[in-house]
Write a protein that binds this DNA or RNA. Structure first.
Lengths: 233, 233
DNA sequence: TAAATTATTGTCCAAATTACAATAATTAGA
DNA sequence: TCTAATTATTGTAATTTGGACAATAATTTA
């Protein structure tokens, strides 16, 4: 299987790839999952995991597959960000790339390098080295998109576990926006988000366990299509 | 020149197109500029203006060119929205399309059909017929993107004339969101947007002319990179 | 100079947001 | 069983923002 190695013969055709930006949070920092390229071009440079899309493959499906192949991460729901297509962004020909992203808690997953990737590592956004291709640019605009979507769409629930505590919910936003929120005010803010409260409680905690909630997608979609509610954080 | 007619031989290559959604406002309605397709597939159906991207062409540049070729509209700054790539969205092969949009006042421009387009027309969003390809879907998600960006990024200034009155500014938002805003409150809301006030005044008006402003991009970018300000409407 | 029209500013009230404090619930350990 | 520790949860008052509406200022035409 080729990776970024293709013939560019047809006048109107190009290659297209997906780049998968995985944002993770741990130790109070936002990090991105990078791979060390094991082949030319940009051999040994760090890069965003990405590869070409199969001809019969849906874009989102491609993003999930590529992420799995390069990092071993499975079943991560990816969100489309932007498409990058400067004619010379790839040294070997025209490759237009569609960036996808997801957000997760690093300690919940274990990544392993594939044969394509010499190494896989979480790198802090504050400490980003020079990356292959235009990946520094892709990374920073995708981070902006992540924040924009977290504020305007309920993508946080793709990231949180099926049942979550309100504190986990709050921490997600604190990590993504790198600021603390007042607990009481946070709960007032989310008052109108349709959540289902469960009777069970958080397990394995040393002190008072928190109540568990899940996102009420049905009610949410009813309310938005009827224009009674718009998600806003 | 081929339009949506290509060979799909290479395993990993596909065709890339741009679709240009032009939103216009007039008579209190949002309309989109559509063309009537003059060739197969979907001959005689209405569609969003779009065509394939040249191999040496930047994406945004392609969007501006395609819009010009199909409608005669020149020098419209286009904004990227989303990329659509379901494997079977084009009946003749794999075409991934990147949607671009812009917003303008219909009476400021005159469109003319090209040879590719049998007809060109502004169609109200509320009265949208069945379009070619997945263009109904593309159109409605791009409208959502337009609104999202108008609220979170200063793209309004790409749409407004270089020097504009605060009323023109307000009308833009009233059209896009299809609701009236209080004049006094609108001015309070925009208080922190960096604008340059000019001494000249609006021309050709029957009564007191309004002051002209322009967007202070330099100050805006300084303030945002230093995290002192974020655009919000 | 007056009338007409529109820009611009100001004020009040309601609602939302913020900061901060108090209380309730639960667990661990003595 | 009781107490200390910890965290969830609720409450309140102060501050800021947003919306409705009114008043004033500026300019053009006649």
């Amino acid at each position: 299987m080729s990776m970024y190695r293709i013939d560019f013969n047809d006048f109107f055709t190009s290659a297209f790839s997906v780049d998968c930006i995985l944002f993770g949070y741990s130790e109070g920092e936002i990090k991105a999952l990078l791979i060390k390229r094991a082949m030319q071009p940009f051999e040994n440079l760090w890069a965003i995991p990405g590869d070409l899309i199969y001809p019969d493959e849906d874009l989102e499906q491609a993003a999930e597959r590529v992420l799995f192949e390069l990092t071993g991460l499975n079943n991560i729901a990816m969100h489309q960000s932007q498409t990058f297509g400067k004619p010379n962004r790839h040294p070997q020909g025209r490759v237009i790339t569609i960036s996808y992203f997801a957000l997760l808690r690093i300690e919940d997953f274990e990544v392993k390098a594939s044969s394509w990737a010499g190494d896989v590592q979480w790198v802090s956004l504050k400490n980003m080295p020079d990356l292959a291709f235009d990946h520094n640019h892709i990374l920073s605009s995708t981070y902006e998109m992540l924040k924009l979507k977290l504020q305007n769409e309920p993508i946080c629930f793709d990231v949180l576990p099926e049942r979550f505590t309100l504190n986990e919910f709050q921490q997600l936003y604190e990590f993504a926006f790198e600021q603390a929120f007042d607990k009481a005010n946070f709960r007032k803010k989310i008052k109108y988000i349709p959540l289902i409260a469960h009777d069970e409680k958080q397990q394995n905690v040393k002190h008072r366990p928190a109540k568990l909630f899940s996102f009420d997608k049905t009610t949410y979609e009813e309310a938005t299509t009827q224009n009674r509610y718009t998600f806003k954080m």
